[in-house]
Amino acid sequence: MGHESPLRHVDLFGVTLTFNLSNILMITVASLIVFLIAIAATRNLAMKPTGIQNIFEWIMDFVKGIVKSNMDWKTGGRFHILGITLIMYIFVSNMLGLPFAVVYDDVLWWKSPTADPVITLTLAVMVVGLSHFYAIRMKGFSEYGKDFFRPMWFMFPLKLIEEFANTLTLGLRLYGNIFAGEILLTLLAGSLATGVGGHLAAIIPTLAWMGFSVFIGAIQAFIFTMLTMVYIAHKVSSDH
């Protein structure tokens, strides 16, 4: 994890954009995998679902349950697709870094895209931004503004902090979990597995931690989606 990042700088209209090519690669890979799985699952749709269609229908119902537990379906229905895409993308991203990491010339290329705070914070900011956008769109600007002074006017600073805290915790929770998981995997594979005895000793903890990381990856995807819906519902609903 202490490897260099493949950074490239691009000047675009006088603004210097920094690209981490590893992130670009992994984002593309994760998106592609999600897309291909989803297409494969929904290519032969039938009224009597079989196999992978069942799984995806279960995922849909699962996300529907998440949305429904936060707001009524009339307002929440429009966030259904966002929720499914988020949970799928984050889950796949979390899984990508588990089986291996590719380091070439001391530069880390293959990892979980969600093991980078920039990515997770981008997603978090996007989600919080969406919550603000939908709050203004569905309740009007004045009602949206007034919400910052409820239930008491002096809560305003706290409300303001809450927005930033929400964004930061949402992004960093995901990043921390996945990054820590990969660090430990790297340490197990890299530092413990030296020599025959070390390799043998590393097998069981590595397997255990991989299993646990799969669990954590799934849980974090669920938590991210759940909190997305919580924040959006918090902003969008008018009864509190």
């Binding site: 990042s5 950074l7 490239r8 691009v10 603004v15 210097t16 954009l17 920094t18 690209f19 981490n20 992130n23 670009i24 984002i27 593309t28 998106s31 895409t85 993308y89 895209p113 980078d116 920039v118 990515i119 981008t122 997603l123 996007m126």
Partner: peptide, 15 residues
């Protein structure tokens, strides 16, 4: 890493 503006834009666009 500095500020990875490119990553942010790319992630947003991809998503």
């Amino acid at each position: 890493a500095g500020f990875n503006g490119g990553d942010i834009l790319f992630q947003l666009a991809m998503f």
